[in-house]
Design a protein around this nucleic acid. Sequence first.
DNA 1: GCCAACGTTGGC
DNA 2: GCCAACGTTGGC
Length: 139
Amino acid sequence: MAHWLFKSEPDSFSFDDLVGKGEAGQEWDGVRNYQARNNMRAMKVGERGFFYHSNEGKAVVGIVEVIAAAHPDSTDTTGQWECVDLKAVMPVERPVTLAAAKAEPRLAGMALTGNSRLSVQPVTDAEWAVVCEMAGVAP
DNA sequence: GCCAACGTTGGC
DNA sequence: GCCAACGTTGGC
């Protein structure tokens, strides 16, 4: 099963905001990047991802689950953008900061620690295991 | 608040 | 189809 990472600025939409949506979850709309869209198209219901806070916090703070496969973005009028629906699974025991991830050699190849500004990223199984370990949650 | 990196746009 | 200009993101 593939894993993912979703970036969000907590000022606009935080992990707590997603928790507040409960089982109904939230459309991950507003993504206007082809690579991110393609990543979302590849997602399957039940796959899990990290929720990363950019700017404020700069850390992986929670685990999310895909509850609906890619569908047209309701906030888009052009019809070319799509998004998945997410729900919060649980917060992590210990947030994994960007600095901590960069300091971990096993995460050297991770999209997050590189220069990518991509808002929806794939995470390898190995990276998933390492970040879960650092976060104090079961993989 | 600044600036570097990247993606997208648009002129040629 | 190339590439310069521009806008946006996001770390510092």
